[in-house]
């Protein structure tokens, strides 16, 4: 099996067979990222194609300071955010459920007394409005700090914290209903 370093080097040299190996190695993982940042499979698949295309174009800028999949994940997230910014109309948004926003103190304090399947979590996550879902994704799953999130989304750190907090409340409420 070809080593990661060699694979990256060959991808930098535009070796098509190496590009295919890299795709096969990380496609599922990146699809997972795409699904978390898109509303549906079709959009996620588009993002997957655009993301790998960008990976192969930009791989020269990968200096090896981190794992390749970490670098790729960050690139996919950036692309997803750009797509959301510039093609808002293309992406489906749920009608905002205002009742979730007028939260009660019980929502805040209730702990997890429910058991849910992973796909129910994904469903609930995908039902959140984008501004909350993205922050929750970035913070909880992609391990980004509020500073990084604020920089990526061009919002203040305060906004990032506030959105994360709202996202948790909303997701908690959705999961409790399942």
């Amino acid at each position: 099996m070809i080593s990661e370093e060699e694979l990256i080097e060959r991808c930098k040299n535009k070796d098509q067979s190496a590009q295919k190996v890299l795709f096969e190695r990380y496609a599922n993982k990146m699809m997972a990222v795409c699904m978390r940042y898109c509303k549906n499979q079709e959009d996620a698949r588009d993002l997957l194609h655009d993301g790998f295309y960008k990976v192969f174009i930009k791989i020269d800028s990968f200096r090896g300071g981190s794992r390749i999949d970490t670098w790729m994940t960050r690139l996919f997230i950036n692309l997803a955010l750009n797509k959301l910014r510039h093609g808002r109309n293309k992406y489906y948004h749920d009608e905002f459920e205002a009742k979730h926003e007028t939260f009660t103190s019980s929502d805040e304090t209730t702990s997890s007394a429910y058991k849910v399947e992973p796909n129910q979590v994904l469903d609930a996550l995908n039902q959140l409005p984008d501004i909350y879902k993205i922050v929750l994704n970035m913070y909880a799953i992609d391990n980004m700090s509020h500073k990084e999130i604020a920089a990526e989304l061009k919002i203040s750190i305060g906004s990032s914290k506030s959105r994360l907090s709202r996202a948790r409340v909303l997701l908690n409420a959705k999961l409790k209903r399942k």
Binding site: A32, R36, A44, V121
Partner: peptide, 23 residues
Amino acid sequence: MDNLQHIDDLLKKSAPSFEYAEV
């Protein structure tokens, strides 16, 4: 930090098991 930290943990735990469309 509110006491909904478990949401983050739940997401972290669930994420690897999310079923995705086949590539």
